[in-house]
């Protein structure tokens, strides 16, 4: 029972980490509805996906799971990039409007759909594993092994509890600091997800590797350790990165920061023009 609890707890925590960091980074935006709908959509998707796993696998000549995972990771990357860029422009607008305007801006919620998708994907990914795992236990266990199901369910609850505590912990940091660093946090998560995706595609031979192991930092942080696994799910850490993973990681980070910078620049340029025409 304890083993089941631990396995389920770990899956829930991995999804929970992404959810709490993304939510904390978007603190100040009214995204509760998006977060909740993301979780619900993810759960429904997870249950459906668990039913069709063998189907996904047999299609696409045995590469089904890899391609599917890579596609959802890349989608999450795009959504996070969009959210980061949107926030950097919108956040500035908010800072310049009065309180009433800010409220209506927050309520209109445009752009927030990206958050829903990112969270749905995080839940979908880990959730389908939990659903499959519990489902197969349920099928194969006799009544005496009902303790396994109890273990699984308490794993889910414990995972949610720890995630929530973590979220409260992150939000304790004052809003000002979060806002200034949230772009960086979200961009790094996006970079991590994209490098995982290209890693998967390079392993099955759909992309070149550009060097299978550029370095080995196992002595600093092993991919097999608890901290290594956490770093993997948040920033895409791997002790032995492929060349293409490093390039993608940096490229995504660069593209997001560059676009954000350009947009801010244009925004201020327009603003100056407006002032000039008023005079």
């Amino acid at each position: 029972m304890i083993a089941v609890l631990l396995i389920v707890f770990r899956e829930v925590l991995e999804a929970g980490l992404i959810i709490s960091i993304v939510s904390a980074a978007c603190k100040g935006l009214a995204i509760r509805a998006q977060v909740i709908s993301g979780i619900v959509i993810g759960l429904i998707g997870a249950i459906m996906l668990a039913k069709f796993t063998s189907l996904v696998e047999s299609s696409l000549s045995g590469y089904g799971q890899e391609i599917f995972t890579a596609v959802i990771l890349l989608t999450a990357t795009l959504m996070l990039a969009w959210q980061t860029i949107w926030m950097s422009v919108k956040g500035r607008e908010m800072a310049e409007k009065n309180r009433q305007h800010v409220k209506s801006l927050l309520l209109d919620g445009k752009g927030g759909f990206a958050i829903t998708i990112v969270i749905a994907i995080a839940v979908l990914r880990e959730g389908s594993e939990v659903v499959l795992f519990l489902y197969s236990l349920f099928l194969s266990s006799s009544l005496t092994e009902n303790s396994m199901l109890i273990g699984g369910l308490s794993g889910v609850l414990l995972g949610i509890l720890v995630t929530y505590t973590l979220y409260r912990g992150i939000v304790m940091i004052p809003l000002r600091h979060i806002f200034s660093s949230s772009n960086i946090i979200l961009s790094v998560i996006a970079a991590g997800l994209s490098s995982q995706a290209v890693g998967i595609l390079a392993n099955i031979g759909f992309l070149p590797q550009w060097g299978s192991q550029i370095w080995n930092s196992s002595f600093l942080l092993s991919s097999n350790s608890w901290a290594g696994v956490l770093a993997h799910s948040v920033i895409g850490y791997t002790a032995t990165p492929m060349g293409i993973q490093l390039v993608t990681w940096c490229a995504v980070l660069l593209v997001i920061s560059f676009t954000t910078y350009r947009l801010k620049h244009t925004y201020y340029a327009n603003k100056e023009k407006q002032y000039a025409s008023h005079e």
């Binding site: 696998e57 045995g62 799971q65 995972t69 489902y135 197969s136 890693g199 991919s223 791997t238």
Partner: peptide, 26 residues
């Protein structure tokens, strides 16, 4: 008789195998 997931952190694969099913990781 149970669903399994063949996973490795240092070899970078992760794949679900249903009971009596076969999979390949790369």
């Amino acid at each position: 008789q149970q669903v399994a997931e063949l996973e490795s952190y240092d070899m970078k694969f992760e794949k679900i195998a249903v009971p009596n099913g076969d999979i390949s990781v790369f």
